[in-house]
């Protein structure tokens, strides 16, 4: 056997070993079947709600307290159908959702550049970083009196309270996202020639996306909470009837089933927007990066 033959055999052999290793080490990704998802992810929370309703009904049946303090689930359901037939249910929900979502989008538009600036410019960070963290722990309901004096009892005051609640958490999420970018990505980007604005666009921003999304999610929760607090406190015919105002009206009529309905609607809307919009987006981003560990 000549020496070139030996070399050729060895090269073919190497390719074979390589292909074999690739096959051995590639684990096919399996999608969990729908039935399993239903059983593991959907069934437990549904059962939880059923248990809560059962306990509630039990407490009502045992007459632990008077019905004007604890109405039955059926009474609350009646309040809901009443709103439905009066044709006001959706207009109440929409008044608040519209305000909450547009306030949230405005917060994104303002919080994002602030976050980038604080994350990337050292003096700005030293000056604004602690202020942003501090604002995040201040309940935004504390801003309602100030907003009312500055702006009057109107939509602008509502938006101001939402912004003061949501902008800090969106900015802080982006800052955390940028801080957590592994330095090796930045070095790799640099060697590939991604510096300055090209580096920000192709490396820094996509790498910071998971933290940013977490900030957006929290920003929505803060927007919604701030808005409900503001609607509860500030009362004016200019504001229209939103969920917070509906809840406060029911308290004034001492209509406990209306109050409970108000609370449940606020809860449902907050959770629904998170489940329909933010959670799928976050899951998609994390899964595509292999950051989501599938629970077995």
């Amino acid at each position: 056997m000549s020496s070139t033959d030996t070399l050729r055999t060895s090269a073919d052999d190497a390719a074979g070993v390589e292909a074999g290793l690739d096959a051995l080490e590639t684990v096919p990704l399996q999608r969990t079947p729908v039935t399993v998802v239903l059983r593991r992810k959907v069934l437990p929370p549904v059962l939880g709600v059923v248990v809560v309703l059962a306990v509630w009904q039990l407490a009502y049946s045992l007459e632990l307290t008077t019905p004007d303090k604890l109405p039955s689930p059926a009474d609350v359901w009646d309040s809901l159908t009443e709103l439905w037939y009066a044709g006001t249910l959706f207009s109440i929900i929409w008044t608040s959702v519209w305000r909450g979502l547009s306030g949230f989008l405005l917060s994104v538009l303002i919080g994002t550049p602030i976050g980038l600036l604080v994350a990337q410019v050292k003096p700005v960070r030293a000056a604004l970083g602690p202020v942003l963290s501090g604002l995040q722990s201040l309940p935004s309901v504390a801003w309602v009196p100030a907003a009312v004096i500055w702006l009057g009892i109107n939509n602008s005051a509502m938006y101001a309270v939402i912004l003061l609640g949501a902008v800090p958490s969106i900015a802080n999420g982006l800052i955390a996202g940028v801080d957590q970018v592994p330095p090796v990505f930045l070095r790799a980007g640099q060697t590939l020639g991604a510096t300055g604005l090209r580096g920000a666009r192709h490396i820094l921003l996509p790498a910071a996306l998971p933290g940013y999304l977490a900030g957006l999610k929290q920003g929505w929760a803060f927007s919604w909470r701030s808005l409900m607090a503001a609607e509860l406190i500030a009362s004016s015919p200019d504001l229209g009837l939103g969920l917070g105002r509906y809840l406060e009206n029911q308290r004034e009529f001492t209509n406990m089933s209306g109050v409970l309905l108000g609370i449940l609607l606020i809860l449902t809307v907050g959770v629904a927007i998170d489940l329909l919009f933010f959670s799928p987006l976050e899951r998609h981003v994390l899964r595509s990066r292999g950051l989501l560990v599938t629970t077995r």
Partner: peptide
Amino acid sequence: LMFQDHALFPWLTAGKNIELALRL
């Protein structure tokens, strides 16, 4: 430059990682 850590960008596919280098 190749690192000990592959330093591939996880938000891109294998092909798009290479395309980003080509683009830059």
